[in-house]
Write a protein that binds this DNA or RNA. Structure first.
Ligand code: MN
Ligand code: MN
Ligand code: MN
Ligand code: MN
Lengths: 153, 153
DNA sequence: CGGGATATATAGCCTGTGCTATGAAATCGC
DNA sequence: GCGATTTCATAGCACAGGCTATATATCCCG
């Protein structure tokens, strides 16, 4: 009962297409699950570097959600090894967390910069980038960066 | 206790930035909620036009999810007025559903075509477009379309 | 025109991500 | 150093979107 990777040899050639189609949706669903973590870690890094500390209440304010929502997510991020919480002192990134944050910040910057290079207004570029960034593969990111580079020259 | 839109006049100017930041995340969260509906409606339209009918089992196969998952979502789409179910005959789009499907198909096509115009490989363009499409605003979509047009000339 | 194959429906479970209400703990200004 | 303020934790709710197992309904072919 293993999933038949290649069945229906010729009569129904749409089977292969369907498999590939499904694969794409699977990956997108996966990306959706990691989006939130990425936004949190990226925001925490930004708060630490710009405000000196990252507090639950401030994270909640920036994300536009309630504090208990943040509390639960931070617990998960700590369990997953991305952050360390020091009660009443703020949230700190682990090595792993810092690495992820750096990657996300870089990607976010490239995507947003790319949109602006295309002539998109700042406001819209910021918003679209916030959602798009999580679905941009390495290959596409590279193309975006190259486009910005050649356009800026 | 209404949310203070503009408080802390000068000492903490970061307040405005935080508000705007939160707004962006709010919109992105909203987009996330409509993503699935869009994918369903778009897929249903595609199945109807290419296979002649859209069945639960086929939708499930294409999306890579279980049939009961599709069943529940279809019920919701019917409640929301996007589709009409004729048991054992397939799923059909309402006027509203057709309009949404057309919009999504057009947007999907433009985004994917844009990525390919940028030099992204077909496989990756298809996958990235599947996720990105839901976060592309009208302004950005227009820019994408124009880019493709000028590149194709 | 029956009966196996196929399609759909339903029940019940889990996880994730929102929320409010509320309790407890720490900080900090006085 | 004490009390108000701030910060954090927890309980409990809702809903979306996955899943499996299983019941039921329809189709269609021999
Ligand atoms: Mn984001
Ligand atoms: Mn980001
Ligand atoms: Mn999609
Ligand atoms: Mn699509």
């Amino acid at each position: 009962m293993t999933k038949p990777v290649s069945q229906s040899p010729s009569p129904e050639d749409a089977g292969i297409d369907a498999e590939r189609h499904a694969e794409g949706f699977q990956k997108t669903r996966n990306a959706r699950r990691t989006e939130l973590c990425e936004d949190y870690v990226e925001l925490i890094a930004e708060l630490i570097s710009r405000e000196g500390e990252a507090r639950q209440v401030e994270i909640a304010r920036r994300l536009g959600v309630a504090q208990p929502t943040v509390a639960r997510m931070l617990k998960r991020l700590a369990e997953d090894g991305y952050i360390q919480q020091k009660p009443y002192r703020g949230v700190f990134l682990t090595r792993t967390g810092e690495a992820l944050a750096a990657e996300c910040q870089r990607r976010h910057e490239i995507v947003e910069g790319f949109l602006r290079a295309l002539g998109i207004s700042d406001e819209v570029a910021r918003h679209d980038a916030e959602g798009m960034e999580h679905h941009v593969s390495a290959e596409t990111l590279k193309a975006f960066a190259q486009f910005v580079a050649t356009r800026t020259v």
